[in-house]
């Protein structure tokens, strides 16, 4: 089995440059590039944080001071509904929609881990009729323009009475995240030697028990990768929630932030605060589980 996943610990020390020393010149170039890269990656996000603790007037001042002359938590107070202000009606939607986002993303993640993991296991271990065809269907579902389905979702959910419900969103998000979960878990299970399953069968487990009693308990990293990725996708999704759940109390956080951004009477600093609050859960999740996610995603993509 050819694998391109970053497994070889021995390679971790490869540094591309000369093995012993790096010349002063190339060292300087390298550190210059590193600095530029760090700034490029983190600068915009840090600036979002800075704007969210600044007053709008300081953001508009020219010359602009990159270190905020005044620091304030007022924007966060407004976003969290702790103070009254002219757009408090808009801001009051943020916390309920965040709760909706949390419910939807958690439910989808749980369903993914149950259904998707099981399927991933079957693809990794067994040969069965329609295997190749259904793998192709999964891949296609993953590459599909979600937006082409949205008109159909709109009419179908309306027929089912699931428009403007969290259930509707959960069902739809599941279908979009499942292909990823299946592929990530398939790739992960392929790294677990199947001697493990075989010895479990010899020891008297049936095939199902071999899966959930023996293989699943040692699949933590794969589950974490797939789960965190599914959660992140749902937490960040905007278009489907925007179109399908138009009633104020039924939508998730991204549409609420976009709606605030569309209002000209709300200061950018307040919107930045809501954006930062909304971004934080996904960013933290990814940073905490980065090792598993990077491994799971690169293995899942490279191997298909």
């Amino acid at each position: 089995m050819a694998t391109i996943a970053p497994t070889a610990a021995a390679n971790r020390d490869y540094r591309g440059g000369r093995y012993k020393t790096r010349s002063v010149g190339s060292g300087l170039v390298l550190y210059g590039l590193i600095l530029a890269l760090a700034l490029w990656l983190i600068g915009p996000f840090v600036w979002l944080l800075v704007t969210s603790i600044s007053y709008q007037r300081n953001l508009m001042a020219r010359p602009l001071s990159f270190v905020p002359p005044e620091v304030t938590l007022d924007n966060y107070r407004m976003v969290l509904g702790l103070v009254r202000f002219h757009a408090e009606g808009q801001a009051a939607r943020i916390l309920p929609s965040m709760l909706n986002s949390l419910i939807v993303a958690s439910a989808v993640t749980a369903l993914n881990l149950i259904i998707g993991t099981t399927a991933g296991y079957a693809y990794a271990r067994y040969r069965f009729p329609l295997k190749t065809l259904s793998l192709f269907a999964l891949l296609f579902a993953r590459m599909l323009p979600t937006v082409v389905l949205v008109p159909a979702f709109f009419l179908m959910l309306r027929a089912l009475g699931l428009q403007n419900t969290l259930t509707g969103l959960v069902v739809i998000y599941c279908a979009f995240t499942l292909p990823f979960t299946v592929w990530i878990m398939k790739a992960y299970f392929e790294t677990i030697p199947d001697e493990l399953d075989k010895s479990a069968l010899v020891d008297g487990c049936n095939r199902l028990q071999a899966y959930y009693r023996v293989v699943l308990p040692v699949s933590g990293p794969g589950l974490v990768a797939a789960g965190a990725f599914a959660f992140m996708l749902c937490w960040n999704e905007f278009i489907i929630a925007q179109v399908l759940n138009t009633k104020p109390d039924t939508t998730t956080l991204p549409p609420v932030i976009v709606a605030m951004n569309g209002q000209t009477n709300i200061d950018y600093s307040v919107i930045a605060a809501s954006g930062f609050v909304g971004a934080l859960p996904a960013v933290l999740l990814v940073l905490i589980f980065q090792k598993q996610m990077v491994q799971g995603l690169t293995a899942g993509s490279v191997k298909g």
Binding site: I115, G116, T118, A119, Y121, A122, Y123, R125, Y126, R127, F128, P129, L130, K131, S134, A137, L138, A141, L144, V148, L149, P151, A152, F153, L155, M156, V171, I172, C174, A175, F176, L178, P179, V182, R207, L208, Y211
Partner: peptide, 29 residues
């Protein structure tokens, strides 16, 4: 169950979900 049927049973929920929420709407669209 035979091996193939067992595996099919494991993938069935995921495939059904994807069929209902992706393939069906795709045809409907």
């Amino acid at each position: 169950l035979s091996e193939g049927r067992f595996a099919l049973l494991l993938v069935l929920p995921a495939l059904l979900a994807i069929f209902a929420v992706v393939m069906l709407p795709l045809l409907y669209s």
